[in-house]
Every structure is written in structure tokens, then in C-alpha cells.
Write a protein that binds this DNA or RNA. Structure first.
Length: 492
RNA sequence: CGGGGUGUAGCGUAGCCCGGUUAGCGCGUCUGCUUUGGGAGCAGAAGGUCGCAGGUUCGAAUCCUGCCACCCCGACCA
């Protein structure tokens, strides 16, 4: 048990906060609702970002950058969009400060009032579609496949480190297409990219699905999403990909000449994942000792802790091991710090979630072995020095797999099919997790269930998904007919 | 914005109800020595506008008033 981290069973929420702070991922800042991402946390985010960026480029996208500020008028061009975001925007009204006359500091200069206020972007559809209007004239300009890495601001009333902060980092893809079919395919492709990343890099099983009208992105025709389950049985939306139809093209008048020499509005998508994924990563795998980071995203995949008895050949042995591992592309840290004792270091690296720890001392060298400790299961074994690097490489793969399988098993265990209201409420309160149930398809019933239980429909699983159940049934709330089970849960 | 709570050293806290010497303790930090295979031991040291402002009093961390900040519960959300 860690000395400084609240246990999950005592207080899951506090465990999460302790972990994020004590493992050096992030900290509160002087600005309410905004956090500081610390170097170790940012290193993990960089690994996520770099991996996703490569995946975007492999699917034909390019990066660009659009302004932080959006003219206020842009936000009112798409009706549903403004409805969804207006309430939580930060607004810039002035461009200058001046010294207060009473010497008390600086005050806003009333003479520097902006003619039109600027909105700090909560998302960039509007400024981007305003720009696209100038870039797209012909079908030859399509498709336009662009992504940007940026920060956005949503003035949330209640925030939680990584999961919901006023400012957060994300990527937002914005694409324009000739046809509806092509745009839908793009939205689905990016959903697949997100699911691939979540499962193969974050070791996080996700359900691919589509949002109900209530949960849909403001301005979208369809919102596809990946939904994950956290260890406390709450769901977390890990990424979204929207088919925007022609809504933004019409709002910003983006028409193109077609192959048939007619004029048509372009079809659009947008898709994004954010630093919220950091929260998902923590809550999916970590334990009471600290973080557990999947090897593929770990800033340090292996740490070597020498046991410092007076032993001249120890340093040479450690350097050889490190070099062998690095030759296989493994990220290695050698901890030669002599201020702390090995026991302290063991606990520290467990807190940081380093997947594999190697202990090397006189005892090992005498026998030609190394002590190999894995973070996920906390197992330790002595491995012959000969072939160690290969062994560690395989072990990293095994840990990556194990984390995924463990999370998958947890999700399977916490996904319950229910057919009655009583059962629904009981599972929600006592077992938690995903609930697969019939729903009559109306926003009113969905809303009613939300008000009664705080559970929302996380998604309607895609037909290709294991969680999907296309079958006749009766709504658990109203008893009206239903054609497919949907996935309910309480969500972050 | 409504309801509840908390502000004391870098962190965590005792003291407050019932005012009275130099505000105590743990962790951390610094120095030295000894240690080093699961969060080391001993010795010494530094570190405080008791959230801010005002009031009551001979005397305020403690009582009163106002303000500020943060946390928790709601409404809102990637």
C-alpha cells in the first residue's frame, strides 16, 4: 500500500486525484479550473499525441493551425452549435490594460474595447469553415483532410484533473467531402483509428457506437463515439467522430462545383480526442500502489536499479544491459542516484507505473542473473543475463496484452443485460458498469431515465460490435417496442 | 448560481468551543556521520503576514463583522 495515495476502496475519487498529483502527472494551478500538466504527465501525452499524429497522417491527413480567437458572430451562424456551446465560452472584450490611477495595479482600459468581441475557441468548426469557404471551389479541392493540435477552453462549472478542465489540449480533425457517403465513411474511419489507438496503445477496450439525439454534438447529424469503462464502473467517453452533414457548409456558404457542373454544399466531419485520455489511462489500469502505464505509452519502459554494494563491475554490467535494451528500441532509465535506497526506488517506480524494473546487485552478478519485476502483476523472477534483452522485450509485449485482457475481462464482467426496470436500477446502484437494455427510442424516455437514475445512454453500439444486440424487445421504462439494445451507464 | 464545509511552514495537521508566555507535531528540506536486495538510523539546523481587512479586548490563531480563495453536493459538460 502506498504511503501517500488513498486506496480505491476508501475513496475512488480521491485515489484518482492523489494518483494524478503524487505521480507527477498534473497539478492545480493559480487559475481556477485550469491545471498544470507536469513533465511526466506531458511525456505520456506526447507519446499519445505522436502516435495519433502518425495514424492521422497514415490515413491521409495533414496538420494545420487556426486562430485561438473566434469572432463572436461566427458562433451564431449554426443554430444548434451556438445552443450547445455559447453558455460555456470565455469572451475577450478588451485588448489593453493600463495602470490604475490609485496605484493599485492594472485595470482594463475602457478605451480599448473591441468592436466585436472575440470568443476563445471551445472548438474550431466555425473559424475553420469560414476559412474553408475560401479554399474550396471545385470537387478537385476535395476531399480536404485537416487536423489541428490545439488548446480549447470550455468554462466548466465543475472540473476534475484531466477529465474536465476549463482549458484542455486536444486534436480536432475537420474534413470536407464531395458526397455524404464519403463523409460518413471518413467519420467511421476516424472512429476506427480512435478505437485502434485506445485498444492497442492504451490497452483500453472500447465500445464503438453512435450517440442518441440527446447526446449528439451540437451541429452534428450523427456523433460516433468510443466508450470505455473505468474501474469504478463509470463510463467515460474517450473520443468522438461527427458526421456534420452540410450544416456548417450551409452556415458558412461552402459550395463547390461538382463533376456534373452543378453547385453543391460540401459534406463535413469533425473528430477529436483530448487530454481526457490521460484520465482514462489512469482510471483503467492503475492500482493502490500507483500508476500502471501500458508499455507502448510509458515514457520509461524499463528502469534499472543497481543495488550499490561496493562492486566495481556493477556499473559496467548495468550499462551493458541498458545498451542491449536500447538496441531493441526499448526506453530505459538507469537510476544511479545514490541518495535513495533501493526500497525507496522500488516504491517510487511502482508509483510512476514503469512497466518493468530490473534489480541488479552482487547476488545476481554472482549467479549471472537479473531480477525482473513486472508492474502489472508485481511478479518478480530471476532471469539469466544471457538473452535478457529479448526476454524483456517479450515481457513488455506480454504486459501490454495482459493489461488489455484484464480490462476486457473487467468490462465483460461489468456489462449486464437487463430486461426490467427493477433490475436496471438494482444493477446501476449495486453492480454498476454498462447495462445493455431496450429503449423505446424517444428523447423523452431517455431524459426521464437520466433524471431518475443519472444513467445516460452511452451509445447505440454499432452493428459490428460485440455489444450490439439487434433484436426485438420492450423498453425497460415504458414497455414500448424496441428494435435494439442500447448501452446505459453512469458517466464521467 | 443554490446548499454545506475548510483556510495554521513546501505538504498533512494539533490548538479555536472555554482569549493569556516563545503556535506544537509528522512528512519533506538542509548539514554531518553511519547505511543501501522493499519507502533507513542518529545528531543538528532552517522554515510561520495563523487566508485578507476591520472590530472587541490590557492581550486574538482563538470572539464579532465583512471580504477572498478552495473543497464537497446539485444545475452544465470532451
Amino acid at each position: 500500500m502506498s504511503k501517500e495515495i488513498t486506496s480505491r476502496s476508501d475513496d475512488y475519487s480521491q485515489w484518482y486525484i492523489d494518483l494524478v498529483r503524487k505521480a507527477g502527472l498534473a497539478d492545480y494551478s493559480a487559475v481556477k479550473g485550469c491545471m498544470v500538466i507536469k513533465p511526466y504527465g506531458f511525456a505520456i501525452w506526447e507519446n499519445m499525441r505522436d502516435t495519433l499524429d502518425r495514424m492521422f497522417k497514415d490515413t491521409g491527413h495533414q496538420n494545420a493551425y487556426f486562430p485561438l480567437f473566434i469572432p463572436k458572430s461566427f458562433l451564431s451562424k449554426e443554430a444548434a452549435h451556438v445552443e450547445g456551446f455559447a453558455k460555456e465560452c470565455a469572451v475577450v472584450t478588451h485588448y489593453r490594460l493600463k495602470n490604475a490611477e490609485d496605484g493599485s495595479g492594472v485595470v482594463v482600459d475602457p478605451d480599448a474595447k473591441l468592436e466585436e468581441e472575440l470568443i476563445v475557441r471551445p472548438t474550431s468548426e466555425t473559424i475553420i469553415w469560414n476559412t474553408y469557404a475560401g479554399w474550396i471551389q471545385s470537387y478537385r479541392d476535395l476531399p480536404l483532410l485537416i487536423n489541428q493540435w490545439a488548446n480549447v477552453v470550455r468554462w466548466e462549472m465543475r472540473t476534475r484533473l484531466f477529465l474536465r478542465t476549463a482549458e484542455f489540449l486536444w486534436q480536432e480533425g475537420h474534413t470536407a467531402h464531395e458526397t455524404k457517403e464519403e463523409a460518413v465513411a471518413e467519420a467511421r474511419t476516424m472512429l476506427d483509428v480512435y478505437a485502434d489507438f485506445a485498444e492497442h496503445w492504451m490497452a483500453l477496450p472500447v465500445v464503438k457506437g453512435v450517440k442518441t439525439a440527446n447526446e449528439r454534438f451540437a451541429g452534428a447529424e450523427d456523433t460516433y463515439c468510443i466508450e470505455a469503462l473505468m474501474q469504478d464502473g463509470w463510463a467515460l467517453q474517450a473520443g468522438t467522430s461527427h458526421f456534420l452533414g452540410q450544416n456548417f457548409a450551409k452556415a458558412f456558404d461552402v459550395q463547390f462545383s461538382t463533376r456534373d457542373n452543378t453547385r453543391e454544399y460540401v459534406w463535413a466531419t469533425s473528430w477529436g480526442v483530448s487530454t481526457r485520455l490521460m484520465g482514462a489511462l489512469v482510471m483503467a489500469h492503475s492500482d493502490d500502489e500507483g500508476l500502471v502505464i501500458p508499455p507502448r505509452l510509458a515514457p520509461m519502459q524499463v528502469v534499472i536499479v543497481p543495488i550499490p554494494k561496493p562492486l566495481p563491475e556493477l556499473d559496467e554490467a548495468v550499462q551493458t544491459i541498458a545498451a542491449d535494451l536500447r538496441a531493441l528500441g526499448i526506453r530505459v532509465k538507469v537510476d544511479n542516484d545514490d541518495q535513495n535506497r533501493p526500497g525507496y526506488k522500488f516504491a517510487e517506480y511502482e508509483k510512476l507505473g514503469v512497466p518493468v524494473r530490473l534489480g541488479v546487485g552482487k547476488r545476481d552478478l554472482d549467479q549471472g542473473v537479473i531480477e525482473v519485476a513486472r508492474r502489472d502483476t508485481k511478479e518478480k523472477q530471476s532471469v539469466p543475463m544471457e538473452g535478457l534483452a529479448q526476454h524483456v522485450k517479450q515481457l513488455l509485449d506480454e504486459i501490454q496484452q495482459n493489461l488489455f485482457q484484464r480490462a476486457l475481462a473487467f468490462r465483460a464482467e461489468h456489462t449486464t443485460r437487463v430486461d426490467t426496470w427493477e433490475e436496471f436500477v438494482d444493477v446501476l446502484d449495486n453492480k454498476r458498469g454498462f447495462i445493455s437494455a431496450h429503449w423505446d427510442g424517444t428523447p423523452e424516455t431517455e431524459q426521464e431515465i437520466k433524471e431518475l437514475t443519472k444513467a445516460t445512454i452511452r451509445c447505440i453500439p454499432l452493428e459490428s460490435e460485440h455489444g450490439a444486440s439487434v433484436e426485438e424487445g420492450l423498453c425497460i421504462r415504458t414497455g414500448k417496442p424496441s428494435r435494439q439494445r442500447v448501452l446505459f451507464a453512469r458517466a464521467y
